[in-house]
Nucleic acid binder design. Structure first.
Lengths: 226, 226
DNA sequence: AAGTTCCTCGTACACCGTAAGGGGTAGGAA
DNA sequence: TTCCTACCCCTTACGGTGTACGAGGAACTT
């Protein structure tokens, strides 16, 4: 099945009046950030743009394709590390950026899970993650393995984190932890004790701990992987 | 907002004829495994059960609630480690189980990302993950931190893995890597070289590598966390 | 003036989740 | 026997969704 990336963005010789692929994506991003993935509809998007629903379909083949474009646009916000940075601080910095991106756009990770997007900006990001590792002397496979490992942790963590940080406007509210604790107090006391431990909810610190673990493990292997 | 878990499953004094919450969840799981999350509709589910669409709503308050029940059911398939196992092999084994669960039910991770479910079987799984760590002498917070770190990696990895392993019947097909390589060959040669490296596609080995990294990092900290 | 290309829109179709309420059936009470 | 109540299933209907199809109009070329 062909993806959006293989088709041209439709030639537009005359000056675009009001509607354009870029304008549609921009407004869609705005609405996604504000209301979440499930609340976005082509009709509402068109209304927000002052156009008829079917007008969008000239610029974008389908709703799923539009969301793929939006997902890739987010990859574009990814800040690049300094071109001469050592691999470890570069990797750390990129992973912090990745987490912040995911937390800033809660719909993003969910969309990634559903649409398997590999757009130009996603490729650029992956490429720039590879770069410091290769420069440190790793083989292609080893660099890929390292990057895949850390970014798996980060996306997994951000996914869990986003579930407990759902703010206003999202699709679902976070579960009521007090009720859950009451429900399971006698059957799973260990679990309830964990829920009530304030240290568990220092999400920033938890992330740092996990990131340290993963990077330590990679560091220990970098020598062998060269 | 109340969740399914806080309401009773509707008292059923007489013998249930045909329809029941259990039967509905069972059939829904079957259809989810076969056709994926987006293809499941209450109407089709009812038809598969030989019932009218609205009949389901006696047993289940809403479609989202039904999916939460399905998600929790999957947690129930999680195999428990031996009750006297050391923390490291126990953790390893559980993470392998978690990955296999995620790959066997591709809709599952996507649903977790969308619904923030904490049902009884999810709690039981979390509890049994905590157990070996606590037995090893970790504090509650340290055990939670460790488990959260590894399972974040595993879910993140499984999410990415599932995107490249989409088999028949899923919502979207995997992207055509050959075309992608052609598109980006001159702009991102490093990335394309990675795509063409067969070692990158030994997903089992990549998973093992990542898991080793994370567990090593935790192991190095276990002493300090006691 | 005629044709061509680009863009916008109106209409329509097949789906979706589910609110509201109508019946039927079974068991217990009168 | 008759009535009441609880439980379960269904019909109808409403307001949404993505998008196929094709009718236009506007601008530019010839």
């Amino acid at each position: 099945m062909d993806s959006v990336w293989f088709g041209k963005p439709r030639p537009s010789s005359g000056q675009p009046l009001g509607l354009s692929r870029e304008a549609i994506v921009r407004k869609a991003l705005e609405m996604l950030d504000e209301h979440g993935l499930t609340k976005l509809s082509m009709r509402k998007l068109a209304a927000a743009l002052g156009a008829a629903p079917m007008s969008l379909y000239w610029h974008v083949p389908t709703k799923d394709a539009l969301i793929e474009l939006c997902v890739d646009e987010i990859y574009g916000d990814f800040p690049l590390p300094a071109p001469d940075a050592d691999w470890e601080p570069a990797l750390r910095e990129m992973m912090h950026s990745l987490r912040h991106l995911a937390l800033k756009h809660p719909w993003w990770l969910r969309a990634i899970g559903e649409f398997t997007t590999i757009g130009p900006k996603a490729v650029a990001m992956a490429d720039s993650m590879l770069e410091p590792m290769l420069r440190a002397g790793l083989t292609t496979a080893a660099a890929a393995q390292s990057v895949s490992t850390v970014s798996s942790f980060v996306t997994g963590y951000a996914l869990a984190e986003a579930n407990f940080t759902a703010r206003g406007g999202m699709d679902s509210s976070p579960p009521d932890l007090g009720k859950i604790a009451d429900l399971y107090r006698e059957k799973h006391p260990r679990y309830v004790e964990m829920l009530n431990d304030p240290a568990v909810w220092t999400l920033e610190g938890q992330f740092e701990f996990g990131l340290d673990c993963v990077i330590d493990g990679i560091k220990a292997r970098v020598a062998a992987l060269r």
